[in-house]
């Protein structure tokens, strides 16, 4: 199970109070994780990545294990600590707008 922390406004949109845990089929990558996330919470479709291009929205960032994974390839494996559930995958709204 992968632990995911959403920004507060997306937790509210998805009806969540806290971090969530989600099963990912196959190798744990950004793409497979987001696919699983959107499958379980369809309301998140389009809020993290573009509907058509599937590219990460510009002001959405992915952090884990004190690293910025935002610019990693979508099919690159997630860190083992994230895949094992030891560390959460943090979805963060970029600091913008004051």
């Amino acid at each position: 199970m992968i632990r995911v922390v959403l920004p507060a406004h997306l937790r509210l949109l998805a009806g969540l109070r806290d971090e969530l845990s989600i099963e990912v089929q196959g190798q744990a990558t950004q793409r497979s994780l987001l696919d699983a996330l959107e499958e379980r919470y369809p309301v998140l479709r389009g809020t993290l990545r573009d509907h058509v291009t599937q590219r990460r929205r510009p002001f959405v960032r992915f952090f884990a294990c004190q690293e910025d994974l935002s610019h990693e390839a979508p099919d690159a494996p997630l860190p083992e600590a994230v895949a094992s559930g030891a560390e959460p995958f943090l979805i963060v709204g970029a600091i913008a707008g004051g």
Binding site: P7, H9, L10, L13, V43, G46, T47, L48, R57, F59, V60, G93, A94, A96, G97
Partner: peptide
């Protein structure tokens, strides 16, 4: 909508 999360 929001600049971070797009359209709902």
């Amino acid at each position: 909508s929001s600049g971070w999360s797009g359209q709902v």
